[in-house]
Amino acid sequence: MNEAPPRQLLVSPIKNGTVIDHITAGEALNVLKILGITGTTSERLSIATNVVSRDMRRKDIVKIENRELMTEEVDRIALIAPRATINIIREYRVVEKKGVEIPSVLIGVVRCPNPGCISNTDEPIESRFEVVEKGLRCYYCDNLITRDIARHII
């Protein structure tokens, strides 16, 4: 008799922290980059990429232990993962669940691809982009980024 293999969780549940679910497939590492989480930071992470999803066909998931992400932090990831959901976990229970909203202004998140832009010099400013219908517009030089936004994330 052929028995179906037992269902297994790909990544074990976390006790406390944040689970970011429904990330656009392939964007998990960029999400971490936006959140400023790198290999040298102390958070314990679990990352699953290209997981089969009923709604999205494929998706990525990121679990961050012992860190509850703030709304301002997670909204920045909406740029590359607009369908992401944020689950705040305490004692293995989801205590808060929210979507992401693209903020109207992004400060210090994206580098202006225009090499002639004043924001790419040593002036005491951070990059600043307005989120417009067609993409992101540099507040300083008016340059419009319409595609491949992740490539310009600082």
């Binding site: 225009n114 002639g116 004043i118 924001s119 010099t121 507040y139 300083y140 030089c141």
Partner: peptide, 13 residues
Amino acid sequence: RHPKEGAARLASE
């Protein structure tokens, strides 16, 4: 007048 784009916006800040 400045060679960098966005210089005037920065100056206004």
